[in-house]
């Protein structure tokens, strides 16, 4: 397995994870396309060394690349393409509703945070 592929996967996963954890929806979408690429590269690398194109009846079985991970990768690419579009549609809807690009706060979380603050104040006053 090529070391370059391993580094590429590692780099894409780190950048992708960093982007997914941000608050901006467009960054999350970009992060997921990075992560998708990383997964596809990892699948490709799992097939072993590169070789000739695996064409039916035309290639030497000894020298061809493993076609199975390529088939898996194709499926994965199609799925991640569709999901990227869905995420973009969600981001657009969010933009229409709130006029912003940021993930909204969970109201429940915020309420609990306020109550915790109140409790602290009561505690320090007493």
């Amino acid at each position: 397995m090529s070391l370059a592929l391993v580094f590429a996967v590692a780099g894409l996963v780190s950048v992708g994870t960093f982007l997914v954890t941000s608050r901006s929806l467009s960054r999350i979408v970009l992060g997921f396309s990075m992560l998708g690429h990383a997964a596809v590269l990892a699948l490709l690398a799992s097939g072993g060394p590169a070789g000739d194109p695996p064409l039916a009846d035309q290639s030497d079985l000894e020298t061809i690349a493993n076609p199975l991970p390529q088939a898996l990768s194709l499926t994965a690419i199609v799925i991640s393409f569709g999901l990227t579009l869905f995420l973009l549609a969600l981001a657009r809807r969010q933009h229409l509703l709130t006029g912003g690009d940021l993930v909204e706060d969970d109201l429940e979380d915020r309420r609990i945070a306020y109550e915790a603050d109140d409790n602290d104040e009561i505690g320090s006053a007493a």
């Binding site: 397995m1 996963v13 992708g16 997914v20 929806l25 999350i28 997921f32 992560l35 998708g36 990383a38 997964a39 596809v40 990892a42 699948l43 690398a45 799992s46 097939g47 199975l68 991970p69 898996l72 994965a76 999901l83 869905f86 995420l87 969600l90 809807r93 969010q94 509703l97 709130t98 993930v103 909204e104 969970d106």
Partner: peptide
């Protein structure tokens, strides 16, 4: 509005898990 907000969390979490799944498939295949 509430659905879009929580839907975003839901989609993000599950999509991340799916990516991990795909990476796991690659590891198992290797």
């Amino acid at each position: 509005r509430g659905q879009i907000r929580s839907g975003m969390t839901y989609v993000t979490m599950n999509l991340f898990a799916s990516t991990l799944f795909l990476l796991g498939v690659a590891f198992v295949y290797s």
